[in-house]
Every structure is written in C-alpha cells, then in structure tokens.
Design a binder for these strands. Sequence first.
DNA 1: TTGAATTAGTTAGCTATGCTAACTAATTTG
DNA 2: CAAATTAGTTAGCATAGCTAACTAATTCAA
Lengths: 164, 164
Amino acid sequence: MSPDTMPTWIPRWPPYKRRRPPTPTEQAAYAIHSAAIHLLRSLRRQDVRSGVGPAGLSVLSVLVFGGPKTMAELADIEQVKKPTMTRIIKSLEYWGLVERKSGTDRRKLEVHVTPHGERILIRARSNRMVVLEERMERLSASEIATLVRAAQLLERISKGETLS
Amino acid sequence: MSPDTMPTWIPRWPPYKRRRPPTPTEQAAYAIHSAAIHLLRSLRRQDVRSGVGPAGLSVLSVLVFGGPKTMAELADIEQVKKPTMTRIIKSLEYWGLVERKSGTDRRKLEVHVTPHGERILIRARSNRMVVLEERMERLSASEIATLVRAAQLLERISKGETLS
DNA sequence: TTGAATTAGTTAGCTATGCTAACTAATTTG
DNA sequence: CAAATTAGTTAGCATAGCTAACTAATTCAA
C-alpha cells in the first residue's frame, strides 16, 4: 500500500475543549465504542459474498441460534419496526431460507429457518469468522482471555437497555 | 417488562455439528463479534435525535477528529464508493455542516467541517456516550481496565486488513 | 353474547444509504 | 500536445429503515 492511500484516521480522544479531563469511564466508553465500530466496519466487507443482505443474515442468525420466532419477536430482537421485518422475512422466504407457519393463535406467524437457510447462514458467518480468527491468531493466550472477558462485559452492558 | 416480551436471544456457541470442538481463538472471535454487534445495535437508537443519518455522523466524526479530507480519502476511510460519499457530503453541505474547497489541484475537493457541524457531531456523539457511560458506571475499575485493553487489541485487529 | 378494544401483521409510500456504469474536467505522461 | 490517468459527479438500481393506515384474529366487558 502506497503511503498516500494509507488510512490516516486514528481514533483519539476528541480534541474539542472540555471543562475537565475525561474520567477513566469516559475514556473507556470512547475507546470501546470506536473499537467496536472499526471492528465491524472492517469485517463488513466479507458479507457481500453471501448474496443475502446484512439485515437478512442477522435475522437468519437469530433463527439458527435461537430457534423459531414470531414476526414481532424478531422485530424486537433486531430493534426494527414490524413493517421492516415483514419485508426482510418476505425476501428470505422468497429465496427459501425461512418458512412461516401459523399456530393456534392465527394472528401470529412462527418463522422457521430452512435447512438451506441454515447452510447459507453458516457459510456467511464463516466469511467473517475466518477473517477474524486469522487476525486473532497473532494474539497471545492472555490477550485472547482479555477479549473473552471484555465480550462478557459488553453483553452485560448492551442488555442494560432492555432491562431498564 | 413482562416475561413474554423479554428478549430470549442469548448468544451461544453455534449448535450446528462440528468436526472438532472450537479452539479458544474461535470462541473468542465468536464472542467478541456478537458483543460488538449487540453493543452498537443497542446504542444506535440514540442517533435518531441528531437529525443526521449515521453515514453523515460517521463522516462528521472523521472530519472533526481527523481534520479536512478529500472525497476519495473519505470514501476510503468509510469503506464506501465515491458516488456514495458524493451524496453524503452533498447532504451535509446542504445543512451547512461541511464545506468543500478546491486547492491547487482543481480536481480535488477538500472537505472541511463547519463550526455548526462540529457542534452537531459532538452533541450526537454525546447521545451515545452518555448512555454508554451510564451503563458502564456499574463496572469495577478492573473491569473498565479490561475493556480498555480489549479496545486496544480490537483496534490492532481491525487494522489487520489495511496492512495486509 | 355480541360489540369494542387490543394485538399481530401487512400494505403503501417516503427517506437514507449502498452499489455499478458512464460521464466531465483536470492533470500527468510519453 | 494527444493519450492516459485521476478526481469527482450523474443516473439509475437495490436494500433497509421509518410512519400511517389498513385487515384479520383474539380478548374483554357490558
């Protein structure tokens, strides 16, 4: 890579004027937010190969790892409104990746992933995971452990919202 | 929150059949990927208040913290094609958040953030940061330290791509 | 027990954000 | 100085988000 195409964007604590120096919590919040954005942005490129959009992949992932869900549950999980979920599921259904079945309460539709959908999801996940795992191979065992602990903390933090 | 509206989606190692048990690196990759997605998804809601879309906010953030950039540089940083950046910048310009200036090489356009744009960005960032900081206040000092170390590791991992 | 309210999901139509192909204008190069 | 390259835009398409207004099914209350 030539010097002038090299990225120059390096996150640092905002240079704008503040009344007081940032607390450790503020610095940590800033750092982990930037890190999460940069991680996902750098992995996003791998997605194009799968032929399903990111919204569809995310839903597939919920269905594969979490089992069948209704439309409203999916919308809630994905933090999306119901009409948006309708469109996403219709598209997945069109491609044979999910099926909708209605049960006793005929207002509700249970969305199930098909075997084909599961294969697609696992292949698409692998695109990201393979890249991420390759990069993580350079880390030491204790660094890996740090990431695992951080992941647990972040999951707790992310749920803060839904429990409040 | 009633029990049946409570989210049931808890990330766990994929249940599909594997030839061998996952290595620690694979588990860590899976965990940190899920954690980053869930963190950002849960913070995304705060953005609506700012009146600027996420793409615009992200560009503003690059300009505020990284200084003026050309269209091509921004497209590269944001991992977006040039026509997409053209549209994003046009919108920001329309709202008076950035300015375009041409220099010696009149093919190139330097994009500068305006004082108004800087105010908007900082307010929008704060929306996310305030929420994140509140949630992080429950963590211990050593947990915060873990997150900071993890953030450093993740920044290194994310750059893996651009250095290869 | 039936009429009103609630719940689940869809339709229609808008906006924002991504892409490629094809273009203009400016600069560099042979 | 003509040809090739570079920077950016225009046009047109797809996906993904939203709200408002709708249908159909269920629940609740008089």
